[in-house]
Simulated assay, not measured.
Amino acid sequence: MEVVIRRTPEEVAATAAGIVADYVRSGPSVLGLATGSTPLATYADLIRRHRDEDLSFAQAVSFNLDEYVGLPAAHPESYRSVIRREFTSHVDLPDADVHGPDGNAEDVFAEAKRYEAAIDAAGGVDVQLLGIGTDGHIGFNEPGSSLASLTRIKTLTEQTREDNARFFESIDEVPIHVLTQGLGTISRARHLLLLATGAGKAEAVQAAVEGPVTAFCPASVLQLHPHVTVVVDDAAAGRLRLADYYRYVLANKPTGQGF
């Protein structure tokens, strides 16, 4: 695991966008896309690179991390809508190549298995963007989730629903159930890219990076992965005990060693 501490959220976004852009430029790639507030600046930076630097997504396909159950696909806060509005409609990534679980499937349990199989059939995810919840969840894998879990239906905690209520008129509109890639599914991506900004995420970041590997902090499963890049701003790094060491390592990276 490499922890990259940047001064500002803007620098976090630029670093993350650069990592994703390297995969896209390398040839056909499978991108794992996350929603929430934190990745939006990264998507904006990728859109800028597409517009100003001819970064093409024509050889990429993407898989969304999760989706609300029962929220109409056309609802502005469905994750299919959010990803299209905030990112894919602004680049040359066709809608047909942007995949997400169907939260309105007649059989959501079968849909979870179908989506898991679709990721496998695409060859797996090359780079997976991740945010982190205040309780340490990634995707919608709430505390207590199996570290080996696959795509499935989950029940959101009240804390997560409260955190997401800002995107709706009230918490009553936030669905209780979601379809989410599991921690085992996420862990099969070849490169995990976790982003966090702001002091409100500092405790969760510290638990994920430096705490024990435990289902109580689902993001701690990243410690078991061979290729993880955690990009945080100074505020989100505020509780890291080894922050000075992480900065030292970054300043002294061997020549030619990327992320």
Results as ranks from 00 to 15, higher is better:
residue 2 E to Q: 13
residue 2 E to S: 08
residue 3 V to D: 10
residue 5 I to K: 10
residue 5 I to Q: 10
residue 6 R to T: 13
residue 8 T to S: 15
residue 9 P to S: 06
residue 17 A to R: 01
residue 18 G to L: 11
residue 19 I to W: 08
residue 20 V to Y: 04
residue 20 V to N: 02
residue 23 Y to S: 09
residue 24 V to K: 00
residue 25 R to N: 09
residue 28 P to S: 11
residue 29 S to E: 02
residue 29 S to T: 14
residue 30 V to I: 13
residue 32 G to N: 08
residue 33 L to N: 03
residue 33 L to M: 03
residue 36 G to W: 12
residue 38 T to R: 10
residue 39 P to N: 11
residue 42 T to P: 05
residue 43 Y to S: 04
residue 45 D to N: 06
residue 46 L to P: 01
residue 48 R to P: 01
residue 48 R to Q: 03
residue 49 R to W: 01
residue 50 H to N: 07
residue 54 D to G: 09
residue 57 F to I: 00
residue 57 F to S: 00
residue 58 A to I: 02
residue 58 A to C: 02
residue 59 Q to K: 11
residue 61 V to D: 06
residue 61 V to P: 00
residue 62 S to E: 09
residue 64 N to M: 01
residue 66 D to L: 03
residue 66 D to A: 01
residue 70 G to C: 03
residue 70 G to A: 02
residue 74 A to K: 06
residue 74 A to C: 03
residue 75 H to T: 06
residue 77 E to D: 12
residue 78 S to C: 04
residue 78 S to R: 04
residue 78 S to D: 06
residue 81 S to I: 05
residue 86 E to P: 00
residue 87 F to R: 04
residue 88 T to Y: 00
residue 91 V to N: 07
residue 92 D to L: 02
residue 98 V to Y: 00
residue 98 V to F: 00
residue 99 H to F: 08
residue 100 G to F: 13
residue 102 D to I: 06
residue 102 D to R: 13
residue 102 D to H: 09
residue 106 E to R: 12
residue 109 F to D: 15
residue 111 E to K: 02
residue 112 A to M: 01
residue 115 Y to P: 13
residue 118 A to G: 09
residue 119 I to Q: 14
residue 119 I to H: 12
residue 120 D to N: 04
residue 121 A to T: 03
residue 123 G to S: 05
residue 123 G to I: 06
residue 124 G to K: 14
residue 125 V to Q: 05
residue 126 D to L: 07
residue 127 V to C: 14
residue 130 L to G: 09
residue 131 G to A: 05
residue 132 I to V: 14
residue 133 G to W: 06
residue 137 H to Y: 09
residue 137 H to I: 03
residue 137 H to V: 08
residue 138 I to W: 03
residue 140 F to D: 01
residue 141 N to L: 02
residue 142 E to Y: 06
residue 143 P to M: 07
residue 147 L to Q: 07
residue 149 S to T: 11
residue 149 S to Y: 11
residue 156 L to W: 04
residue 158 E to N: 11
residue 158 E to S: 15
residue 159 Q to E: 10
residue 162 E to S: 11
residue 163 D to W: 01
residue 163 D to G: 04
residue 166 R to W: 10
residue 166 R to E: 04
residue 169 E to K: 14
residue 173 E to T: 05
residue 175 P to W: 08
residue 176 I to K: 14
residue 177 H to A: 04
residue 182 G to W: 05
residue 183 L to V: 07
residue 187 S to D: 08
residue 188 R to T: 14
residue 192 L to G: 05
residue 192 L to R: 02
residue 193 L to M: 04
residue 198 G to L: 08
residue 198 G to M: 10
residue 199 A to R: 15
residue 200 G to F: 04
residue 203 E to R: 15
residue 206 Q to C: 12
residue 210 E to I: 13
residue 213 V to S: 04
residue 216 F to D: 14
residue 216 F to R: 15
residue 217 C to R: 13
residue 221 V to Q: 12
residue 222 L to T: 15
residue 222 L to N: 10
residue 223 Q to T: 07
residue 226 P to W: 12
residue 228 V to T: 07
residue 229 T to H: 11
residue 230 V to K: 10
residue 242 L to C: 06
residue 243 A to G: 02
residue 245 Y to I: 07
residue 251 A to Q: 12
residue 251 A to K: 08
residue 253 K to F: 10
residue 253 K to Q: 15
residue 254 P to S: 02
residue 256 G to L: 07
